[in-house]
Amino acid sequence: MPEATPRNIIDKFFFTVGSVLDAPTVWVREKIVEPNQKNYPWYHQKFRRVPTIDQCYTDDVVCIHEANVQYKRDKLVDNEILSILRQRFEDCTMYEAPDHLEKCTPLMRQYEEAAGNWFAKYGDLGAYHDARRAYMKQKHRMVWERRHGPVGSGMKKTGSLEE
């Protein structure tokens, strides 16, 4: 929007006074503050991804520590995602009070799937767990699935006695 030109001497006076007071502030903002700001398109700090625990050597303490810190950050993010999904489902059930069984079913399924995935990754690890223990849990689960089929599907039949 173009600036209005002053119409009379009083407008011209106030326009000049305003420009004198406003010009240093605008100059500092445009020439000093804005060029030195870090402009992120997101509202949280973005960390670089580091090697996971399976990519670290066993004697590389720094790599193991970075993997643990990243694992804990990822767990916090997964906790928040699960919390948001749970809150969406609860809000839906409160808003759609009598018909919530039909209308909120997709949200309930999405939350239950996310909760199952969260438990598969972080569940049963105890209070003081780290990336190494989570990796071992994942490895043991993969060995179990290779031998017996997917977890929760029942054990596959082996041997000739049951045939």
Rank of each mutant, 00 (worst) to 15 (best):
P24T: 06
V61W: 05
P150V: 00
V50Q: 06
P41F: 03
D99I: 05
P2H: 07
V50Y: 05
D74N: 13
F47I: 05
T105Y: 05
K139P: 00
P98F: 08
W27E: 10
D74A: 06
I10L: 12
F47T: 11
W42N: 08
E80S: 07
K156C: 01
T105I: 02
G152R: 03
D74E: 15
L76G: 11
A120L: 03
K46T: 12
L21D: 03
K75C: 07
N117W: 03
V33G: 00
A134Y: 02
V26E: 15
P150R: 12
T5G: 05
E102Q: 11
G154P: 02
E145Q: 11
H100A: 09
Y57H: 11
E145T: 00
R48Y: 14
A67F: 00
Y122F: 15
R141D: 15
P6G: 06
Q87C: 03
H140R: 14
E66M: 10
F15P: 00
S83D: 07
N68T: 04
E90I: 06
K103I: 02
H44Y: 15
D74F: 05
T5Q: 14
V69H: 02
E34L: 14
Y57W: 09
T58P: 01
T93I: 10
V69P: 00
W118Q: 03
W144H: 14
E112M: 08
D91Q: 13
V50A: 10
A131P: 00
Y95A: 14
V151L: 13
A97Y: 14
P6I: 06
Y95V: 03
C63Y: 00
T105C: 05
F14D: 08
S153F: 04
G123W: 07
Q37F: 04
F13S: 13
C92F: 09
R132W: 05
D11L: 05
S19P: 01
E113D: 14
P98L: 12
K12Q: 15
G159E: 07
I53R: 08
M136F: 11
P150G: 07
A134L: 03
Q87N: 14
Q55E: 15
A131V: 04
I32W: 13
K38W: 06
S160C: 08
C56W: 00
Y122C: 03
H148E: 03
K103Y: 05
V69K: 06
I10A: 11
N117H: 12
A115T: 01
K46G: 04
H140E: 13
Y40K: 13
Q138M: 10
A114G: 04
T16C: 09
Y95H: 13
H129N: 15
Q55R: 11
Y135R: 13
R73G: 01
F13E: 08
E113F: 02
E80I: 03
K38A: 09
P35L: 08
H148Y: 15
H129W: 02
Q55D: 10
D59Y: 08
P98W: 07
Y57S: 15
